[in-house]
Design a protein around this nucleic acid. Structure first.
Lengths: 232, 232
DNA sequence: CGCGAACCGTACCGTACGGTACGCTGCATT
DNA sequence: AATGCAGCGTACCGTACGGTACGGTTCGCG
């Protein structure tokens, strides 16, 4: 389960070979689903021996875990210009992240990996699901949350609970696209950028500090989940 | 794959026995995940023979498909009072459906079934995923869409594209709760009703025909996904 | 009472796949 | 050149599970 350090002084080539194998495995998974991801199949596709697979990854689950972290490492956040401030800048940043999120979630390997993790979520492995959550969701939540709080500190948006605000934004962006894709619905063409802008604008309408006219009517409305909201 | 009519004149008892078996299978799946759902295991749990299983469901996939439709049939929409009109009534109806949706999606069997369908989504069976989509999502979309359009006809809310409005509402309600649950994140306690009210209120803020002051500023903002929205 | 249908329980078969063992090859270091 | 090591390819093993076959039992009907 734990990624055994096959060799303490892991030379560059060592790791490179591993990554090449992981790449093959991801490709295999992407096109054939879990069924295609047999140890023999991976070995064949990567031109390596099963024995080497077990030496490097210890276990089939170890291989899967390595695939997840490897894939996640390829999607690492590209540093974004944090210079300009103001609402347009905030909006642009949010839209950028949202667009990226939509593209990533729609990716074939991401879908396949999520399917894999979900299929084995209950009672198995070192919970690949947790791994996906840690390496996929958490970074995005961190980035978005930081951005949201920066926006709040700048007086551009208003909310009580950062996590709540983040979750709302996430819902506006992704909707149920992810689950539908996971369930195998053929992905229908759409513009991630346009959808991202739309979602961010909706979010800003809900959480913007300056409403159309007058102060925000419901600043805490989406804070703690309490009943009896103020819509009569 | 296709649900073979085992007997044209399926007597009540026949179907009852089948349903009992499906119940056992669902229980088994709910507690043990897919791994526990072996034909032998189901037969043992249901006190029937494997041979009967194959006679009734034709196939393991047939059993899975039957489980999905059976479970869906148990969640059929309870007819709701469509009497009163006006915004409070609309809001109450939406909140009701949203609450129900959240409860259903959080259910153990629902989660297990979705995991199952997702695990086999790519290239397998008669696409259990499609089945889940058809029997799980579509009814909710139908109900919500009808309600939304009724609200629009009554001048309470405004939108161009019904599907867009529905998708936004869905996102606000469910957020990424579903995927997180599917990935195995322990379900943290929350009040479905409160979350439903919160989501519906947010939706009404976005799509309500009567804004705080003056006419809606962005009535078509969430219609067709076009770029260049009106926030400068 | 006799018969047949449905069905339970179990034993059985074939296969697919995770995991291991072994022999051989090519490269690097001395 | 000799030696050792990493790794490839393949053969092999055990098991788990989908699917089938068979004997025994119950129940309803003529």
């Amino acid at each position: 389960m734990d990624l055994i350090a096959t060799s303490e002084t892991q030379s560059e080539g060592h790791s490179a070979r591993r990554n090449a194998v992981l790449e093959s495995a991801l490709a295999l998974l992407g096109e054939g689903g879990e069924r295609a991801l047999t140890t023999a199949g991976v070995a064949r596709a990567a031109n390596c021996s099963k024995e080497s697979l077990y030496k490097w990854f210890g276990d089939r689950d170890g291989l899967l875990a390595a695939m997840i972290t490897f894939q996640a490492s390829k999607v690492r956040a590209e540093p974004q210009p944090v210079g300009a401030t103001g609402l347009p800048a905030l909006r642009a940043q949010l839209v950028g992240i949202a667009t990226n999120l939509l593209k990533v979630l729609s990716g074939d390997v991401s879908i396949a990996l999520n399917r894999l993790a979900i299929g084995k979520a209950h009672r198995d492995a070192a919970d690949l699901g947790q791994l996906v959550l840690d390496h996929g969701r958490r970074p995005i939540e961190t980035r978005l949350s930081a951005l949201l709080e920066a926006g709040r500190d700048a007086g551009l948006i208003a909310f009580d609970d950062t996590h709540e605000a983040y979750a709302t934004l996430y819902g506006l962006i992704v909707r149920d696209m992810h689950v539908r894709l996971l369930l195998g619905e053929p992905k229908q063409p759409f513009s991630p950028a346009a959808r991202a802008e739309q979602a961010v604008d909706q979010f800003l309408r809900l959480f913007g500090a300056m409403e159309t006219t007058g102060p925000a009517r419901e600043r805490t409305g989406s804070g703690s989940p309490n009943n009896a909201p103020d819509i009569p």
